[in-house]
Design a protein around this nucleic acid. Structure first.
Length: 606
DNA sequence: TCCTCAGGGCCAGAA
DNA sequence: TTCTGGCCCTGAGGA
């Protein structure tokens, strides 16, 4: 079976795939002046068979499987340190501080555009500096990290927050010293700001002091990372974003070379490949790394929810407009919580004012359980990169030949691996015994897989195509025309479900709740800690109801409709599993992988 | 062993 | 008194 592949996503993502050795970018390889290498540690070949305990071991092993990708620049690459010469720090003696510090900072910056600390050599080649898109589009946090703009030469040393001179990488991206300090102080001291205007204050060099609320909001929006502020306040050393910074630099170099090879200027990037129109469905990437889940799990005490009825507990006459959920401050520092609150701006149906008002615990917020769920999410793009890298390596090893069915099964196998990884790292689930984890996963893997596919279509998909986890887009007519009736039905029902989700405006938070509802299925037999599973399920229901009522006050029966959608999803999953089983029986599914193992486990348990 | 560079601390000046 | 921002210190990681 052959597929028509198109690029999907902004051009930067495509280039990133080139950098990562992604096979879809094969046409671009000839323009790639760099040596790209991928490496991955793969699990032992023998995965199938065995009893339950052995399978537990296999899953553990799979969960620890790591794939690493790195880019090597040629020796003659300029700007190996990443920053252009202009931005390299001059060696400074200790006396330098006293000298420059003796004058007022304002006077200094006026008299010296280069701030004295920097040499004034020419910029030469451009440097990587992620900035906000300048088209008025509100970029969600995750996009601002990934959909980076390559600014014109004049913008190269501009802080993406305030436009001041960049002093280096700080907390995830190139910013000025001032915004670095501001971000650090805000996070370290748990600052809580409010905006006296409408939370859209202009932040530039001259006005950045006026509204710390909007300044911090912008810091988060452009991609400054909360987790880069050290909780232990330890000085020195390197953070764990080193590889990311390196990648950014390499990507910049690569993009320049690519553009030059096309005879294009760096500041203008025509769509080499047209990105699809994105739907309002919005996956934000929330990076919070704070409170241990113990606080949450204490809620699981049976007394807390015994006899709980979520309809009774959350009366519908209570206007969500006056909604005050459990104070996030009790679980998270206000500053870290605001990353979550602030990020709901892209969720359809939630008025901006409702999402990003005061960042104190008084304001509206996501149910705390939902915040915890969001923290468990894997980085979507990292997963994508790893899967691409892994498939690429398999291709290199002759493990598969092209984009046929085998490619699809291997990709599904990779998706399952990350589904397992997600589950094992998720709140509640990780507290279960491995045997219980296995039982739950064996029961629900296909539903999670289907949900993953459906939510991706909501986010990136368009009519008549199927967007894969790798970002590749499959033409549905080309997929369906040679297919058998089962696959045709599967595709049709899948499209129906996507449409259903779209009409319901299912957002990311609801999808995340769905994942936990699927995972904690009380119908699974012989689970040792059944009461725990039931309690979790009840809590998830409650959080989902709470969220839908708050976020979609005009849509009071959304929760009920979501549950109906869920049953459709279960039906689709059964169909998908049936299809995969039939292919497995025919011997089309590659052996010795997780997909194979899960298919067999289901059969054995029946 | 030395160098790089990103996170933290300090402190004068501004608000 | 608090906030800002420029400068220096520190130390992990790489050459």
């Amino acid at each position: 079976m052959g597929f028509i592949l198109r690029f999907c996503g902004p051009v930067d993502e495509q280039l990133r795939r080139v950098e990562l050795g992604g096979s879809p970018a094969v046409q671009l390889w000839e323009y790639n002046p760099f040596l790209c290498q991928t490496s991955a540690e793969l699990p032992p070949a023998e995965l199938g068979g065995g009893d339950m305990e052995e399978k537990g071991n296999v899953l553990s092993e799979l969960s620890s499987r790591k794939a690493s990708v790195e880019v090597q620049l040629p020796e003659n690459t300029t700007g190996a340190a990443g920053l252009p010469p202009k931005l390299r720090r001059r060696p400074q003696g200790r006396g330098a501080r006293r000298q420059s510090g003796s004058s007022a900072p304002g006077v200094q910056s006026l008299s010296s555009p280069c701030r004295g600390s920097w040499t004034s050599e020419s910029l030469g080649q451009s440097s990587f500096a992620p900035i906000l898109l300048n088209n008025g589009r509100d970029i969600p946090h995750y996009e601002s990290l990934l959909v980076v703009e390559y600014p014109s030469d004049a913008d190269l040393d501009m802080c993406p927050v305030c436009g001041d001179t960049v002093s280096g990488y700080h907390y995830g991206l190139l910013t000025c010293e001032s915004c670095k300090g501001f971000f650090k102080r805000t996070v370290q001291n748990n600052k809580s700001y409010t905006c006296s205007e409408s939370q859209d204050c202009r932040i530039d060099k001259t006005q950045r002091k006026r509204c710390p609320f909007c300044r911090f909001q912008k810091c988060l929006r452009v991609g400054m990372r909360l987790e880069a502020v050290r909780a232990d306040r330890m000085r020195g050393g390197r953070n764990r974003f080193g590889p990311m910074y390196k990648r950014h630099r390499a990507l910049k170099q690569q993009k320049n070379a690519l553009l030059q090879s096309h005879g294009l200027k760096a500041e203008y990037t025509p769509d080499l490949i047209s990105p699809p129109t994105r739907t309002p469905f919005n996956f934000t990437n929330i990076n919070i790394n704070t409170t241990p889940s113990d606080t949450i799990t204490s809620d699981l005490h049976p007394q807390t929810h015994s006899g709980y009825s979520f309809y009774q507990n959350q009366p519908r006459h209570e206007s969500p407009q006056h909604y005050h959920v459990s104070p996030l401050g009790a679980l998270y520092s206000p500053v870290r919580a605001m990353a979550v609150i602030g990020d709901c701006s892209g969720i359809p149906g939630i008025p901006q004012a409702q999402c990003s008002g005061s960042f104190s615990a008084q304001g509206p917020a996501l149910p705390h359980l939902l915040v915890e769920f969001l923290r468990c999410e894997l980085d979507e793009l990292q997963v994508q990169s790893k899967i691409i890298g892994c498939l690429e390596q398999m291709q290199g090893e002759g493990g598969w030949g092209g984009y046929g069915a085998t490619h699809m099964y291997l990709m599904v196998d990779q998706m399952l691996f990350y589904i397992v990884e997600w589950a094992r790292g998720s709140v509640f689930f990780k507290e279960l015994k491995v045997s219980d984890q296995m039982k739950l996963l064996h029961h629900c893997w296909c539903e999670l897989l289907v949900l993953d596919m459906v939510s991706r279509q909501l986010q990136h998909g368009r009519q008549g195509s199927l967007v894969l986890v790798t970002g590749q887009e499959v033409d549905l007519p080309a997929l369906v025309s040679p297919a058998g009736p089962l696959l045709r039905t599967l595709v049709q029902k899948g499209q129906d479900l996507v449409e259903c989700f779209r009409k319901l405006q299912v957002d990311r938070n609801e999808v995340v709740c769905f994942k936990f509802l699927i995972l904690f299925n009380t119908d699974v037999k012989h689970v040792e800690n059944q009461s725990f599973v039931e309690n979790v399920k009840e809590q998830v229901h409650r959080a989902l109801l709470e969220y839908t009522l708050c976020a979609y006050p005009q849509f009071l029966d959304k929760f009920d409709k979501l549950l109906l959608c869920w049953s459709d999803l279960c039906a689709l999953s059964t169909l998908a599993e049936e299809y995969l089983c039939s292919k497995d029986i025919c011997g089309e599914v590659p052996c010795n992988n997780l997909l194979n193992e899960l298919l067999h486990a289901k059969h054995h348990s029946m």
